[in-house]
């Protein structure tokens, strides 16, 4: 199992783009927001938690179509399906690799981007914490979307259509926790809800993903 994780990480580093693209996208979205809504710092600091959460979510989404498509094209998924590794575990590992290469860098980069949007000082900790708890769910749900659409040529847009509605609960609780943290309210309730969703999704979604992938491999 660690072999698959090591391979995916190695590929992400070597093929480039793995770490870089998502982060660059996140940066650009964040920079574009003030152009769209105006430079008033009190407005920016009010919407900063939501914008940063949304940016992280879109950056995650952007890299999803590479998650399984490459392994599908070169036949790796066929071979993995006939290997002793259960497909559920393989997809769980691939989601983990996606989180390490996409979600984790976003979490680490978000304080810097928070400065650009005048995020209130008390909000940084809660924003990072909420992203840390929420982004794994984004990767796991995204893996499900990728497994559903892996057989569709140019399925990237379709996958966004399928995955984005599934992101609603995570986004709501994540952004709510970050917002409450930034405005000095108690963020504990949404944080607990967010953790609950992440825990549930991590436990159950690999089975749904594997079921979808098996159908596509037939």
């Amino acid at each position: 199992m660690t072999a698959l994780l090591r391979r995916d990480l190695k590929l992400a580093v070597r093929a480039g783009g793995g770490f870089g693209l998502g982060l660059a996208f996140f940066l650009i979205v964040t920079v574009l927001v003030p152009f769209g809504v105006g430079p008033q710092s009190e407005l920016l600091s009010r919407i900063a938690p939501g914008i940063l959460w949304l940016g992280a979510l879109l950056a995650c989404l952007l890299s999803l179509d590479r998650l399984l498509a490459l392994d599908w094209e070169d036949g790796t998924l066929d071979l993995l399906a006939t290997s002793p590794l259960p497909l559920e575990a393989a997809l769980g590992i691939k989601a983990l690799a996606h989180w390490i290469t996409t979600g984790l860098p976003l979490v680490l980069a978000v304080p810097v981007l928070g400065i650009l949007l005048n995020l209130p000082a008390q909000g940084y900790g809660w924003l990072v914490l909420s992203l840390l708890l929420g982004t794994p769910a984004l990767s796991v749900i995204g893996t499900f979307g990728a497994a559903l659409t892996v057989g569709v040529k140019r399925g990237g847009l379709l996958m966004s259509l399928l995955v984005l509605p599934l992101y609603v609960p995570t986004l709501i609780f994540g952004a709510e926790a970050a917002r409450r943290g930034a405005t000095g309210m108690d963020p504990l309730t949404p944080l607990l809800m967010l953790s609950g969703i992440t825990a549930g999704v991590v436990a159950i979604m690999p089975f749904a993903s594997a079921a979808a992938l098996r159908v596509n491999l037939r």
């Binding site: 391979r7 190695k10 590929l11 070597r14 094209e73 070169d74 036949g75 790796t76 066929d78 071979l79």
Partner: peptide, 11 residues
């Protein structure tokens, strides 16, 4: 072993 070998070009 199918038509495609499941090889990674970057490895």
């Amino acid at each position: 072993a199918a038509h495609s070998d499941g090889l990674k070009a970057m490895l």
